[in-house]
Design a protein around this nucleic acid. Structure first.
Lengths: 330, 330
DNA sequence: TTGTAAGCGTTATCAG
DNA sequence: CTGATAACGCTTACAA
């Protein structure tokens, strides 16, 4: 593989000069500059990123950690980030943490060892202190998830408002017995907490208390949704609506309801979360809360790039708004 | 950040010895070995991969190029690869080529510059010669896509058989006027070609000629599917069934059909491809051809790891079988 | 069993 | 404007 020395030799110049050309330094004669370009072209020369990194260079690469790439919310989010990064001449490396602490640590180490210039975390497994300790090596930004006591930059949607909006919608439609799914496991922190707050607030507006028998925790998948529906079907006193917390769960609920011969929304109104492609395709089409995925991606990458250029951030916390998408399931 | 020198200093040993410990060389006294481990622990030392790479080391990282991560087929495929790689102590870097030659080249260069030890390509944008020239720097393996005249290792499903199976199913059900979608643009090569062959073969079995007015090329998305359905609806002589080539397109067809008040499968039978999650969720549930995604991922990573260890490959071409999943759309 | 020293490909510093 | 040189962190002959 051609190295900078090869280019230097071929042009009769020094490595230093070649390096300057590569890095667009000023004060180089036009002829030599072009000479170098020509030689680079002919040799198929590509700078070796490892060597550059060793010298402490930036890599024009940012890393994005997602919990599960098969979750469309995250694949679309990464996709949006990729677009913006590409326009700014940055590459995106995607990592799947699988919700495992050790994998997440591995990726944080990529920052430590300068494999990536900065990191966007769309999920958080390790403790706040652990993650913050890595900011020494490059900027880290939370997108979607966050830790409330951390002062790392965050791009997120107002989850409390989102949950409030969705629950309010159900209440406005006349449903009063509302079940609730959450992905979190009684977390004290982060977005699940916020959603709980919004849910409660909406119920409060209507002077309704939460029925803890209708609260399902640690739910994520389509299978979980089916299971929830089964449980509900067996209840003596059933809810008349359910806030599912994700379109996957909602889809599972819908499918199982269909299998059980129940009518949506007559027997049970269902509201999803995310507005994923399936929301529109499933029957009945899902009422859901649309997260501004594109905007989240754009905003995160934008902020991270500003951070990388040491530009000051106008605000460390970007809070985006959600939108209620009413379809046929409520 | 702690370096090997720090560890050496702290232990009073030389860098060389520390390096030997890190790399599990034999002939090191137990005491020193433990001394080094202790110091590494205390300093939070992590070897710098850039330095290692510069020395020509392996990185225990493999790269996977996908065209579009938002396509569930690919996100599930990468996910499957990730599992196996992780079990073998390898990390997976995911890249989205966006079906662009230049992006793909960027990723190929990661191999050239030893950022990844090997590469799995699930899509191919550049010419065969270009890609093969990169095998000089590390093993490359095709998964899903392939170039027929290339002798790079391939893991794929028998697309001809798959298309044959699907088309045969339609014919067996009594449909005779079969429309056909393909992602390829009259390609001479790769999987689209194979599918065309399978499609034709099935029709031949029934002595039916392809109606070119019912062939749609370069179709990929849900939107494409809707568009196809619109076109069909406007035809004077309509097909009675359609082989869509992907569940996305099939979903689009179904949605548009519903919008137009058409009955599936009575007015038009629809068969998808991939058996993605939506296939089961959409109404009517989609008859489709299941690709062995998990197996493809497992097999690809397994082959690549063998290649990386210079183990001989029993066979360079793994061909996996598909399965027809009959639901309600045909 | 351990240490010394060279070198991987870059770029920054300093000197012209 | 250009060139020599050191340094980044690591591994590996070679020597001891």
């Amino acid at each position: 593989m051609a190295t900078i020395s090869d280019v230097a030799e071929k042009t009769g110049l020094s490595k230093a000069t070649v390096s300057r050309v590569i890095n667009n330094h000023p004060y180089i004669s036009k002829e030599k500059r072009e000479l170098v370009y020509k030689a680079m072209e002919e040799l198929g020369y590509q700078p070796n990123p490892s060597a550059r990194r060793l010298r402490g260079q930036l890599t024009n690469t940012i890393g994005v950690i997602v919990p599960r790439i098969v979750n469309p919310f995250f694949s679309y989010l990464v996709d949006a980030m990729e677009q913006v990064a590409y326009e700014n001449n940055y590459q995106v490396l995607m990592f799947q943490s699988d919700e495992k602490k050790d994998k997440e640590l591995y990726f944080l180490n990529l920052l430590k060892t300068k494999q990536v210039d900065g990191l966007i975390m769309t999920s958080i497994e390790n403790d706040r202190e652990v993650i913050e300790s890595y900011t020494e090596y490059g900027p880290i930004l939370f997108c979607n998830e966050y830790k409330s006591r951390s002062d790392l930059p965050v791009v997120r949607v107002d989850q409390a408002e989102a949950a409030y909006l969705g629950t309010k919608h159900l209440l406005d439609r006349g449903y009063r017995k509302i079940a609730y799914c959450t992905g979190g496991l009684f977390v004290e922190d982060g977005k699940d907490k916020d959603r709980n707050v919004g849910f409660q607030k909406a119920l409060n507006d209507y002077n309704i208390n939460v029925n803890t028998g209708w609260v399902f925790v640690n739910k994520h998948t389509i299978e979980d949704g089916k299971h929830v529906m089964k449980q509900i079907a067996e209840m003596r006193e059933r809810p008349d609506a359910i806030f599912t917390g994700s379109d996957e769960i909602a889809a599972g609920v819908l499918m199982e309801a269909k299998a059980l011969g129940m009518k949506i929304p007559e027997d049970l109104a269902v509201i999803g979360f995310d507005d994923q492609p399936i929301a529109e395709m499933i029957d009945p089409a899902l009422t859901t809360i649309r997260q501004p995925i594109k905007e989240m991606g754009t905003e995160s990458v934008g902020m991270l790039l500003r951070l990388l250029k040491n530009h000051p951030l106008e605000q460390k916390h970007q809070e985006l708004s959600v939108e209620l998408v009413v379809r046929s399931s409520t």
